[in-house]
Design a protein around this nucleic acid. Structure first.
Lengths: 226, 226
DNA sequence: TAGATTGTTAATCGATTAACAATC
DNA sequence: TAGATTGTTAATCGATTAACAATC
């Protein structure tokens, strides 16, 4: 079953899944699109559209059965399989992510970390921290699809190229340097294509400050406009 | 000048601004929509639309002048003014953000941090770390519009409510618990409205793993489909 | 002038919303 | 049956893209 769901649909499905897990823990057996929508912050119509898209069927009296729906989304998102990632750049942010408790619940494991100065890395948990020079040989031996990039901005492009050349096809980029996804055949024929998700903390924060720009403004209400 | 730019436009403007800063440092005086688009990864038409929207005018021969454009976007985004935020939750992620070097360049300063156990916080930099119980009194004395939330999921909702009640109107939420923005008058009359940006690391990572789901699949190409 | 770019209008695209028949 | 929900179609909305006249 391939569906080519778009980004927003996938993100919603992840969130439905989390709600369904909690509902299951509470003993729920059925759920209405209405309630699921409330929990995730979307309308019931969107929920039904999404679920129809993944060919989940509901019951016109009782809504959707929690168990099969949970199993279906879980399988679709690959949560039922163990998924591996590496992390490059073990500064403060990188080290924090190595300890991030949320991954385990998603069946995601960071199997190795890399840094220019592994001996200086403060992280002391179970994940091995290797020297960045061993990146290529490691990835030659282990087929890991996804890399998490937490290096300083100035190193981002170089590490990006090395990850591409080593066969990484998905990158979660925390550096301030936005990286562009590579589509197949866009550059050299020999290069893999690669999905990129840029998480730009300062971009989000700048946007937030734009939104709240009217605080202490002339009207004195303390409320932003609109 | 109020423009009510949408989220994506603002995010693009932030990125134009960064490119313009670099161009200025290189001594550029003019820039074409074409080149600016390439640098940011959008089409020239989008750039011109965005710039027209903020009432920046270009020259049909030489493109846009870097200096006034930079000044205009800078002023619009408030980057010419000092902007303050607080941070709640000084675990590994929170501590990493307290040291985040990107904020200074944007004229953003974290003026105080809060934690349930300030004496156990590893961070030792210049930003004061207070006990969470002093949050309300601090915000009563200092008018800080934005809060960065890096608490464990289980604490997210409680701290969210406290920030709302203390007059915070913009929240950058790193907890796994998605928070919903509050629009004016949506709940109690006395409550402020509040903008929220949720940065969900595990959501992004789950999406990335969905995108790369075809690695090692039947065709053996190693390329994801499409 | 000739060529190239801006600024803007129209066309396209996709996603969200509204509406409602089917049906449990 | 009566009421409520699903599944789906049509309408709406907004953003992106294409196209091109204006003009430097």
């Amino acid at each position: 079953m391939d569906l080519n769901l778009n980004r927003n649909t996938v993100l919603r499905l992840v969130r439905y899944l989390r709600v369904l897990e909690q509902l299951k823990a509470l003993g729920f057996e059925k759920i209405f699109s209405n309630n699921l929508g409330d929990a995730v912050g979307v309308t019931a119509a969107v929920v039904r559209k999404d679920l129809a898209q993944i060919e989940a069927v509901g019951n016109k009296r009782g809504g959707y059965s929690v168990d099969p729906l949970l199993a279906k989304i879980s399988e679709l998102l690959g949560k039922d399989r163990r998924r591996e990632a590496i992390l490059v750049g073990c500064g403060r942010l990188g080290s924090a992510l190595l300890d991030y408790p949320g991954f385990e619940n998603d069946n995601i494991e960071i199997v190795a970390a890399f840094d220019l100065h592994p001996e200086q890395v403060a992280y002391t948990g179970p994940i091995p921290v290797h020297h960045i020079d061993t990146l290529e040989s490691y990835l030659g031996q282990h087929h890991v699809p996804v890399g998490i990039l937490t290096v300083p901005d100035r190193a981002a492009n170089e590490v990006f190229e090395r990850l591409l050349a080593s066969g990484i096809i998905g990158i979660l980029n925390f550096s301030g340097m936005p990286l562009k996804p590579r589509r197949r055949g866009e550059y050299d024929a020999g290069e893999h294509c690669c999905y990129v998700e840029n998480i730009s903390i300062s971009l989000e924060l700048a946007n937030l400050f734009y939104l709240v720009r009217f605080v202490d403004s002339a009207d004195g209400s303390g409320y932003p406009a609109q």
